[in-house]
């Protein structure tokens, strides 16, 4: 009954051949536990993404954990100041491997409009970022697309570092 009938090889002696990486990647990508490093309005948009209307649970990433030790996806959502950067570094280092990072929005990715003395001009200077989600703040659809790109990285369809930072034209 059910899923067994869909897979012919399970109907016989119940064996299926695959790669270990594929199985582990499949399990990991469908149970991402995000850690929301929310410091500004992007965090509000993250809440909208996680709750019922946009429902991040459809992609297995609804278990938001506020402990870095229980999560494997850090979503940096908002401005990071030079007073906050040591905190971000410590929390990032407390996350267990494997871990992935989404830089959500203009401020986390590039500093945004805040080109001022305390404002970090892109967290990727100090922590490795896998996916950048543009927007100010990004719409939930954009963040969901970012999570799907993280899933591509996890199950090997994309390389780490494949999604690069958006370039800003200096005038």
């Amino acid at each position: 009954m059910g899923i067994e009938e869909m897979i012919p090889s399970l109907a016989g002696d119940g064996l299926i051949t695959t790669q270990v990486n594929k199985v582990i990647g499949w399990a990991r990508k469908n149970s991402l536990w995000p850690y929301p490093f929310g410091t500004a309005c992007c965090a509000i948009e993250f809440m909208a993404t996680a709750s019922s209307r946009y429902d991040l649970a459809r992609f297995g990433a609804e278990v938001v954990r506020f402990s870095p030790r229980q999560s494997d996806l850090m979503i940096v959502a908002g401005r990071v100041t030079m007073k906050m950067m040591p905190v971000l570094l410590q929390i990032y280092s407390q996350m267990a491997e494997p871990k992935w990072v989404i830089s959500m929005g203009a401020c986390a990715s590039t500093g945004g409009v805040f080109n001022t003395y305390p404002q970090i001009q892109g967290v990727d200077q100090f922590i490795p970022v896998d996916v950048y989600v543009p927007g100010c703040p990004p719409r939930p659809e954009s963040l969901i697309d970012g999570v799907l790109k993280i899933q591509q990285i996890i199950d090997g369809q994309a390389e780490r570092g494949e999604f690069t930072r958006p370039t800003v034209e200096a005038n």
């Binding site: 030079m82 950067m85 570094l89 280092s93 001022t116 970090i120 200077q125 100090f126 922590i127």
Partner: peptide, 12 residues
Amino acid sequence: TGRGERDNFARA
């Protein structure tokens, strides 16, 4: 834009 304090952290 400060005197470089915002760029002065170690990488993770």
